[in-house]
């Protein structure tokens, strides 16, 4: 029996479908990494629960400086900066694409969908801009 094959099909929908699964899993990995390492670094005794959770979902310097932690070097360094960028990009893209899917579930194809899609893109870029600015201004000790 001869194997039947065709070239892989890459459409926007198929790429985003895959991205939603990967980014969903990645967010678990980022959050658990942030939580675990924070606990190892002393968050149990030097952070309250609220601060720890804020750090878990966005490991940025401001969440540390508002706690009782005195030695900041291990909390604010390039590793966490990369984690911040990845968390923000994956989370906002995941959320924005989810909104796009809801939008397209309920609206017929037409100019209205294009306008709202464009608006979503602008909101997403704005969120990235604000977050990147935050990371840049608080990412160093």
């Amino acid at each position: 029996m001869q194997a039947r094959r065709i070239p892989k099909i890459l459409s926007f929908e198929s790429i985003m479908w895959l991205f939603m699964r990967i980014s969903g899993l990645a967010m678990y990995v980022f959050a658990l990494t942030g939580l675990t390492i924070a606990l190892i670094m002393g968050a149990r005794t030097q952070m309250d629960m609220g601060t720890l959770l804020r750090w878990t979902f966005f490991p940025i310097g401001t969440h540390v400086t508002s706690s009782d932690i005195l030695v900041l070097e291990q909390w604010i360094n390039p590793f966490w900066t990369i984690m911040q960028y990845l968390t923000i990009v994956f989370a906002t893209m995941h959320g924005t694409n989810g909104l796009r899917m809801v939008l397209e579930d309920y609206m017929d194809a037409g100019w209205g969908v294009h306008v709202l899609r464009g608006l979503l893109l602008i909101i997403w870029l704005f969120m990235l801009l604000v977050a990147f600015n935050l990371i840049q201004t608080t990412g160093a000790v």
Partner: peptide
């Protein structure tokens, strides 16, 4: 014609809905 059908189904109103 599997490729043509799969291209249709990979589109906006195909299997990913």
């Amino acid at each position: 014609a599997a490729k043509e059908r799969l291209e249709i189904l990979a589109g906006q109103f195909g299997v990913y809905r």
